[in-house]
Design a binder for these strands. Structure first.
Lengths: 199, 199
DNA sequence: TACATTTGCTTAACAGTGTTAGATTATTTT
DNA sequence: AAAATAATCTAACACTGTTAAGCAAATGTA
């Protein structure tokens, strides 16, 4: 017969088309627009059909997350294999990670819990600027070169902030936190950045 | 009369009670449970009343964000004022920022777009581990001390990852990205961490 | 005091959402 | 052709944010 295999193939096709549709919607309209009924519209079925391929909405998100990690893995490996020197390899790998985050923005958001639709960073809010200014002032006190260039303090501020915000985010999203390692990273990295603040 | 003022005061009370209720719900059940009708339940009104105090759901989120930044500002300033030495000040400030993130987890999530309910970091996913392993291998190649301690490579990996993930998150959430500064932070920080990898 | 107006608040509704159960149609097997 | 099975849809439930209409109580005016 072979019709079993044909049906099997069709099923896999629809499953893939669900994921494709989901991705298409998210890339066009963002994560807020992601809905079962919209996916159904795109694949030209009704919503309940999707539940024969995925247990629920989160099932689709899980699968997309998996795909995202696979893409990332390929890119990072390719970056490594493009260099010989271990130092260059490591740098290339992190740069590949960086590029992935923006080329596959939607994947990255899903994989690492980075929102963007709602609640943007309101950096123009005076209440937000207050804290930023405190840090800028503190950093500029440590800069010996006078006059202090705006670029330098900005660079240092974002280096600090990125490190700490990254560490915080990872810990907030990831449950199993090792507090000892966190403190070690925090303190040693802060001291390291402060030490090189006048380089 | 003075009744105008009493009414004014009552209005401010309800406004505050809306924010309190919102915060209470989020702290008890997480951001996913945050809804207008639930707030209404808590303040013992019906949902449409809320729209006389806030233009919509985002208006409440905006106000909570503002409050969050105010809390953070107070904490960071207190940390600064607790020290004399500029280096110690800066370190204390970032540690205060760190503490705020976990003490006021819900605020931090809102302020910086850190999801946690849906789509957790699936670090136990084999597809995710693949990339992690690539980085661990690359880092361990650079560690001269043999045998390589698990703690050391872990520390280095998380330092790298935090920095880059933080920088990525900030850029994804915050629109106005300065690509030049990003590249500068990225490359110089990667090189700096690599340089101190055997300290 | 009697009427008119404003205010406070609620009910009802609309258009969405995820998800499930039951009915219907189409396909395959007997 | 009839029976059994698979594929698909319709309808519904319980939610969501948000708006419009209505009611009832408090207030202002004559």
């Amino acid at each position: 017969m072979g019709s079993k295999e044909r049906i099997q193939r069709q099923k896999e096709d629809t499953r893939k088309s669900i994921l494709d549709a989901a991705l298409q919607i998210v890339k066009q309209e963002g994560w807020a627009a992601f809905s079962m009924r919209k996916i159904a519209d795109v694949i030209e079925y009704t919503a309940p059909i999707i539940y024969e391929y995925f247990s629920n909405k989160e099932g689709i998100l899980f699968e997309l997350t998996r795909l995202g990690y696979m893409h990332l893995g390929v890119k990072v490996k390719a970056a490594r294999d493009s260099k010989e020197d271990p130092e260059e390899q490591l740098e290339a790998m992190w740069l590949a990670y960086w590029d992935f985050a923006f080329e596959e923005k939607e994947f990255y958001q899903l994989m690492y819990g980075v929102q963007v639709n709602c609640c943007e960073l309101y950096t123009k809010m005076p209440e937000a600027e207050y804290t930023t200014d405190l840090f800028y002032d503190a950093i500029e006190k440590l800069l010996t070169k006078q006059p202090v260039s705006e670029d330098t303090s900005c660079l240092k501020y974002y280096t600090f902030w990125s490190l700490i915000h990254g560490l915080v985010s990872i810990n907030l999203v990831q449950k199993g936190a090792n507090d000892e390692i966190n403190q070690q990273i925090l303190r040693s990295a802060i001291k390291a950045i402060i030490k090189t603040i006048n380089d």
